[in-house]
């Protein structure tokens, strides 16, 4: 059976108008991942690594200056703009992260009913679906009659999550990397998403909060400088059992581990002038002469790794 979502060798470039000629800025350069039913997959990486761009590519909401190559499939069907227009909101839903997604002048109930309609719930079942959904998030029925501004931040977040899940979407995308969220509310949202995956939906979470996802996600996909560098089981990452030197450095930098930062910064991502070779090479302690050629993404028994000299343990 094909996975719910499969992303194969996807690259995204943005056209930026220079002062005398156009320039292409590569934001994603070869990203692959998949999400099956019942699974929560986390996409992690530094800010600027292109995490949010991938969510936009899957939802087909990239700006017109973007060019996408590679294949994105939903249950084996290639996601083209017309296919996406049919699936978005119905089968694929974005879990909104900011309260601006709630209409301030409408009560919560009607907003949820409208979301259920967009999500393909038949008319006679919508009110019941809204009631069930509110209960799932521990919100009483009285909340349906309230306006968003009368809810506490945490309750408003749960109402938002209910908006995304009241429909019948099989694949939920959550971009937790958005800044300005209360970390505690984010943690709560991640636990809710885990519950939805256990109920048989597929969940893709985009985040930088490594400490949390390695306890919740089935698989973790690590991005560096626009590339997938490793895919590993969450439980393996939790123990530092990773192959790629960057994933290992991320894990080691956790306060619960050595709290030792890796020196240097990811490439700025402007221009394709990163040269040949491994993009992590300037910061990699394990680098050798072979790293002057770009390593391919290779299958290892527990996942995938893009490195000539993967770690063993």
């Amino acid at each position: 059976m094909s996975p719910l979502l499969s992303v194969d060798h996807v690259s995204v470039r943005f056209r930026s108008a220079g002062w005398w000629r156009q320039r292409w800025v590569t934001v994603l350069a070869d990203v692959s991942l998949s999400v099956a039913r019942g699974e929560m997959v986390a996409l992690i990486g530094a800010s600027g690594a292109g995490k949010s761009v991938l969510a936009q590519a899957v939802l087909g909401v990239l700006p017109s200056t973007a060019a996408v190559s590679g294949v994105i499939q939903f249950e084996g069907t290639v996601l083209t703009p017309p296919v996406l227009a049919r699936l978005r909101g119905r089968r694929i839903a974005l879990v909104p992260q900011t309260l601006t997604h709630l209409d301030p002048v409408r009560r919560i109930g009607p907003q949820l009913v409208a979301a259920a309609r967009r999500g393909g719930v038949p008319a006679d079942l919508r009110v019941a679906a809204v009631r069930t959904e509110l209960a799932r998030y521990g919100l009483g029925e009285a909340v349906a009659r309230q306006h968003p501004h009368t809810l506490s931040g945490g309750m408003a977040r749960r109402a938002l999550a209910a908006m995304a899940t009241v429909g019948q979407a099989d694949l939920l995308l959550a971009d937790e990397a958005t800044t300005g969220l209360d970390p505690e509310a984010t943690l709560h949202a991640l636990h809710l998403l885990r519950g939805l995956a256990d109920d048989g939906r597929g969940v893709l979470v985009i985040t930088h909060d490594l400490a949390t996802v390695l306890r919740l996600a089935d698989r973790v996909v690590v991005l560096y400088a626009g590339q997938t560098v490793e895919e590993v089981a969450g439980s393996a990452l939790a123990q530092g059992a990773v192959r790629h030197p960057y994933s290992h450095a991320l894990w080691q930098a956790l306060p619960s581990q050595s709290f030792q930062p890796l020196a240097g910064h990811p490439p700025a991502g402007d221009g394709d002038g990163e040269g040949d070779g491994c993009r992590f090479r300037p910061r990699c302690a394990a680098a050798g002469p072979d790293c002057a050629t770009a390593p391919p993404l290779r299958r290892v028994e527990e996942g995938w790794v893009r490195c000539h000299r993967p770690r063993s343990w």
Partner: peptide, 17 residues
């Protein structure tokens, strides 16, 4: 105030160090 909550683990550890 949650000054490194939005940073990845490496950037956060760099800043604290």
């Amino acid at each position: 105030d949650e000054a490194t909550a939005m940073l990845d683990a490496i950037a956060a550890a760099q800043l604290w160090q």
